[in-house]
Structures are given as structure tokens and as C-alpha cells.
Design a protein around this nucleic acid. Structure first.
Lengths: 252, 252
DNA sequence: GCGGGCGGTCTGTGATCACAAATCGGGCCG
DNA sequence: CGGCCCGATTTGTGATCACAGACCGCCCGC
């Protein structure tokens, strides 16, 4: 599958949904620089639609915390601080730990197989130094695990939290990834699923999230701000279709 | 510093925000019957605004799970099932337990005083049989507690979960409320705050949520559906200002 | 040379219009 | 008498327009 996608309503062809997905994908792929201003008309032009669907998509993303709208009314990619990362870390540990525990009790053989496959693909991508595929497969691994918990509302909230941490997960590369604990942790999770050991699955997921987000939090400067993963600007493509690649990076 | 984070925006006077607040308030007050259909034009007419702000407000509420939009496109108040209640219960236990634990470590003397006052007001309202004030003060107690944790993102997610359980909390009255455990649990929480005992505060909040939502879940029929708290219809007030009382109950 | 106003432009907000899909009701056919 | 089909109405979607407030840069006065 090209995009694991947030499940939900695969048959939603509304422009609003397409704009939402485009922005979301650009955000998780790190194509927006943290702090970057994003105007309604810019997005509308880049995607070739009117303001209406853009407003609804952007406004939803603001409600989800993926963008910020300042009182002076300008929409920006949120800047991260140490405190915010730690807050997100604790929330993710609580909810993803919960999901992992439920998944351990419910995962079918096929679901476990899919999770194991994602884990193998992470190792393969990492050995090639392919951080793009790496990140994508890490996401696949986690969401295949959480989907096995069979709790759709929980899954939605977790997706919202990933969206907020997304633009900053590039910071884990390449240094943090070199740690050997990652693959070992995933192996333990798979073992826990097979053993129906909810406590162990929860503990391993919690450890994984704690390590990764504590690492990101420690990148904060003395003012508490975290440097953007990639200080990049975005170039406007003129008259593009409402596809997924309308937001492009621009060296400067 | 004036506003370190974008915080809330109490000075948001946009119509969208007013519509959003009106719908949210009507929802938590149980003025919409679960399963009830809500059309954009109906809300626009009831509040005396055009479709534009209504669309954005309703769409956000759909994204938050407070309303459902079916593929055939009709917006409804979600019907609850036993599984959904249990899912919400577990999420709320995880997140509100987390917040209570943090609050125990951070609550100031003034914040604890505010929480204690809310607890007293609950007892007072309950002794009068005033379930409206009761529910309102219960909400105040919980959110004063969670606010003391100083984690704005966490608070927002918790608010989203309350919005989903809101229309069904009337089911706790009057039978469940008669249980003497409620006041005792709140007292223990306040003691935990004073003692800076995070584990105890978390445990008590978890117990409170577990008891209440397990009770609601047990109201499910053999099909798994939960009867609406009050099977009530809503009457349209013609040419009303965009106030908070535009949605009114109608006996039938 | 520099700071503060001042005008033009940018940008989000809300209303309105046009349209297509969905829904509902009545009437026709079996 | 009942089920099905077709047309009128309802309803969400997207585009466009008008407008007010914010932003930005230029220019004048000190």
C-alpha cells in the first residue's frame, strides 16, 4: 500500500479531505519548516482549489494542534519547546502504552505477521541508510500495532499526537537511530504479542517513546526552544493539481 | 511575558467560535438527543448566521468526535455502544490519571483551595437534589484539578473526551450518584494534592472514572446500544441571536 | 539620520450563489 | 394492496464576492 493512511473514510473524495491529507502528509514528511507561515490563499493556489476547502482543512489542523493560529491571525507550524515535547511524550506513553497492551490481548496471527514485517523493513531500510523509508516503516509498525487493539477512537487520538510530533522526528536521524535498543525493543514487543503479555508490550512501547522523545527534548537550547529539524522554505508550484506533492522544498 | 504559548483565545469573537461554543454547550447540557440529526441550515437558522461559520464549527466537532458524519452525509449526535464507552473509559483513565498525578506535584495552595471549593459545592448541590449544578460543579472540580497539572495540550485532549461522554453523563443521575464513594474519592484526591502524593491522586481519579463509566457501559442492552439519557427533540427558535440558548428542548 | 504616522496591500471572515448527490414522497404498475 | 420508480425537495460542497483588520514599507517631519 502506498500510504497506510489514517483509515477512516477511504471513500471521502471531498476537496477538503484532499487538502487535509496533502497538508498532513507534507507536515509529517517535514516539508514545512517549524515556524513557517502558511496562508490560506497560498495553500489554495498551490493545490489549485478555492479558499473554502482550504479553510476547513487548515482550521481542523489548527484544532488538532498541527498548526497554530495566532491572535493576529496568521497560521504557522508550531515551534516546539522542551516542555511541549515532554508533555507530548507523557501523553503518548500513556495512550500508546494502553493501545499496545490491548493489542497484546487481541492481535491475530495475521496482524502479528504484518507488524513483524514492518519491523524487518525498518531494519532493512536502516542498514541501507534510507531514513525516508525508515521513518515510514516505523510509522507503519506502530500503527499496525495500535490498530490491532481494535479501538478506533484511541487510534484517532494517537494519530493526532503523531501529527504534532511529526515535524520534529527528523531530529532523531542520524544519531539517535544508531542506538541498538530500537530493534531489540521491537523484537520484545512482537514476543509480547505472541505471549499475550499485555504488561510487557506496554512497558516496551513506553520505553521506546520515552527514549525517543526525551532525546528530542534534550535538544532544547537554554531558552527551551528546539531547533527545527530542517530549516527549509517551501516553493509554490503554480497551477498544480490537488495532489500530494504540491508543497516542495526550496534551497535558499 | 504576556502569552508564552498561543494558549486559548478567550478574545475570539468570530462567529465560528460562537457557533462552536453554542453547539458544545448544548451538547454537554444534553440538549441534543443522541442519534438526532443536525443539519447545517438548521443550526444556521437557529443561531441566525450563514452557513459558513456553521460549517466550520460543525466540521470541527465532527473531527473531535462530538458529532458523526455518515457517508450519505448527515450529521448526527453519535449513538453510544458498550464498547465505545469502555474505550472512552480507558482513555480517560489513562489521561486524567496522568493529569491528576502531575497536578499533585504542582498544585499551588490557591489551586487546591479552588478544587476543594468545587468539591464542597458538589456536596451542597447534591444535598439539594440539584443535578444541574451538580454536573456543572463536577466538571469544575475535574478541570480545576487538571488545569493544575499545567499541561495545556493534555487539557485539550481531555476536553475532547469529555465532549464525547457529555451527552451520556445524565445517565448517572439519580441512581449512581447516590453512592457514597464519590465524595470520599474527591476528599482523598484533595488529601493527595496536599501530600504531593502523585500515585494516590492518580489512583483515585482512575477509580472514579472506572466506576462511573463502567456503570454507564452496563446500561447497554443485549445489542450493545445504550439508551439515550433523555429522548428529547429540539425546537427551532426563529430569528434568534447567536446566543447560547438557541437550542431548546421540546416535549413530545 | 531616524522615528512615527499613513496609505496600500495582504489576509482571514462571513454571506451568497450554483450545483450535484441524497432523500423523501407520491403515483404508477404489477 | 403493496412494492418500485421517478421527480421535487433537501442538504452538503465548493466558488466567489465584499469587507474589515493587520501588516508592511514608504515618506515626511523633527
Amino acid at each position: 500500500m502506498p500510504t497506510p493512511a489514517p483509515a477512516k473514510d477511504p471513500a471521502d473524495t471531498s476537496l477538503r479531505k484532499q487538502v487535509y491529507d496533502s497538508l498532513r502528509e507534507a507536515l509529517t514528511a517535514g516539508r514545512f519548516a517549524p515556524g513557517q507561515k502558511v496562508t490560506f490563499r497560498y495553500v489554495a493556489g498551490a493545490l489549485g482549489v478555492s479558499l473554502t476547502p482550504v479553510r476547513e482543512a487548515l482550521r481542523r489542523l489548527v484544532a488538532e494542534g498541527a498548526f497554530e493560529m495566532h491572535p493576529n491571525r496568521s497560521v504557522r507550524v508550531p515551534l516546539m519547546t522542551r516542555d511541549k515535547v515532554l508533555e507530548l511524550r507523557d501523553m503518548r506513553m500513556a495512550l500508546e502504552g494502553l493501545a499496545a497492551g490491548k493489542a497484546a490481548l487481541l492481535a491475530t496471527r495475521d496482524q502479528i505477521a504484518g507488524i513483524r514485517r514492518a519491523a524487518r523493513e525498518i531494519i532493512a531500510a536502516r542498514s541501507r541508510g534510507d531514513s525516508i523509508t525508515d521513518r515510514q516503516k516505523v510509522r507503519e509498525f506502530h500503527f499496525a500495532l495500535y490498530a490491532a487493539a481494535g479501538q478506533p477512537m484511541l487510534l484517532r487520538v494517537i494519530e493526532g499526537l503523531w501529527l504534532q510530533t511529526g515535524p520534529y522526528m527528523n531530529l532523531l536521524y542520524p544519531d539517535f537511530i544508531a542506538s541498538p535498543r530500537g530493534p531489540a525493543g521491537r523484537l520484545k514487543i512482537i514476543e509480547a504479542l505472541q505471549a499475550r503479555d499485555a504488561a510487557s508490550a506496554r512497558r516496551e512501547i513506553e520505553n521506546d517513546i520515552r527514549r525517543a522523545l526525551s532525546y528530542v527534548a534534550d535538544l532544547a537550547d537554554e531558552a527551551g526552544n528546539i531547533a527545527p529539524a530542517r530549516p527549509s522554505a517551501v516553493k509554490r508550484r503554480r497551477s498544480a493539481p490537488a495532489g500530494a506533492t504540491a508543497f516542495e522544498l526550496q534551497a535558499h
